[in-house]
């Protein structure tokens, strides 16, 4: 057993344990923190595979943006998670049953894992050997050539997400004063100030 395998099992077991804690922790803030832990370990697994770009992206996007956002939301909204989880025990037996069944079946599926003999020749896309080229480079090449269409469409999805977010949340509140830069810039000295001659000793 070499070091690599040891590290793999370390990362993998921590990931699974953290995932269990995410759904079982009483405090939602703890849940999010466990989620971050799981992400980090998953990134470690990526690194083991030599996919350093994915590992970094995972840390930056999921930990740096998504999980932190989660943390904010959880802390800002006072959601009573205990109440939400009330039905949990009620559905545990049947849910557990379904879960166990699916687990057993998937184990069966994995047990019979064989790539179809006819599948040997068709690789989805030709990947250059690691070492010739960096991760980032390789991904970029394939994204902008072979997967041009999905890539562009992913852009459209993001556009929809943006539009949707604005549509659903942006509203013009009456009674809120907003900064109008153009109005500010258009202000002249004459508009902003008025000079008055005040006779001395008389007051305004």
């Amino acid at each position: 057993m070499n070091l690599e395998v040891l590290v793999f099992y370390l990362f993998a077991s921590i990931t699974v344990a953290a995932a269990v804690m995410v759904i079982s922790a009483r405090n939602p803030v703890h849940s999010v923190l466990f989620l971050i832990l799981a992400f980090f370990n998953a990134a470690g697994l990526f690194l083991l595979c030599g996919a350093e770009f994915l590992a970094m992206i995972l840390v930056i996007v999921y930990v740096g943006a998504v999980a932190v956002l989660f943390l904010f939301v959880v802390m800002m909204l006072d959601i009573n998670f205990a109440e939400l989880r009330q039905g949990f025990l009620q559905y545990l037996p049947i849910g557990g049953l379904i879960g166990v069944i699916l687990l057993v079946e998937l184990a069966l599926v994995l047990g019979s894992w064989t790539i179809l003999p006819s599948a040997g020749g068709v690789a989805a896309a030709q990947t250059p050997a690691i070492g010739d080229i960096t991760n980032t480079d390789a991904l970029g090449r394939i994204l902008y050539t072979h997967y041009l269409l999905p890539f562009q469409l992913a852009g459209m999805i993001l556009l929809v997400a943006m539009v949707g977010a604005i549509v659903l949340t942006l509203r013009a509140r009456p009674g809120v004063r907003r900064q109008s830069i153009s109005a500010q810039n258009a202000r002249t000295k004459e508009l902003a100030a008025e000079l008055k001659k005040v006779s001395s000793g008389q007051g305004v």
């Binding site: 559905y91 049947i94 849910g95 379904i98 069944i101 699916l102 079946e105």
Partner: peptide, 11 residues
């Protein structure tokens, strides 16, 4: 849950 049961049943 219904969806999961459906999938589980089919599988």
């Amino acid at each position: 849950f219904a969806m999961l049961i459906g999938v589980a049943a089919l599988v």
